[in-house]
Amino acid sequence: MRRVANLCCMAGCLAALRGEAFATPAVELDTELRSHGGAHGLRFGVAIGQRADRVRGVLIVDPWYFIDEQITTDLLARVPLPATLELNVGLRNQAVSLADGMRLYESLLIGVAAPLRVRVGAMQFNAGMQLTTLLVSHGAGLPTQLYSLSRGTSNLEAYSFELLVQGRYAL
């Protein structure tokens, strides 16, 4: 009888926790380091979703415009996969300052990430890889240029492969 009561108590507690998780959006602040790829190596992001194990929207911003007059912004969906993996898929905008305005480069991103067994205080770490495909550039009063999906070009620079490490701080 006592065992049944304990089981009921545990089930009640779990139900209560699930309710809490549903009610509270999972918000994370990210710091990410990435290899090359034409984007600045250190950027910052915010991930927002209903809860941590559901699809979340991620905005990664770039504070380093003053260094070289270019910034990179990623808008991603972070999709949980089996075995603690995550799929990251979305769009990248890169704005590069030219003499007559900003040249904008639009890319598709797809990548996977997995948690590392590293923790510093409340910050968890993930490692991942990402393929970037540059689709089009436009702006600055110059012709719009298609890249990776364009015939007549053999532009290997339109594709880049990046490795990244993310530090995630849950709010």
């Binding site: 034409g38 070289d68 590069v96 532009n155």
Partner: peptide
């Protein structure tokens, strides 16, 4: 051929003496 962000990155990093590109105006 193209002047992409990764190409610009290489130019900024290695400061070549010459650059030959298809998107010269960019």
């Amino acid at each position: 051929e193209g002047v992409t962000p990764t190409f610009l990155d290489a130019v900024a990093l290695h400061a070549p003496r010459y650059v030959s590109v298809g998107e010269a105006a960019v």
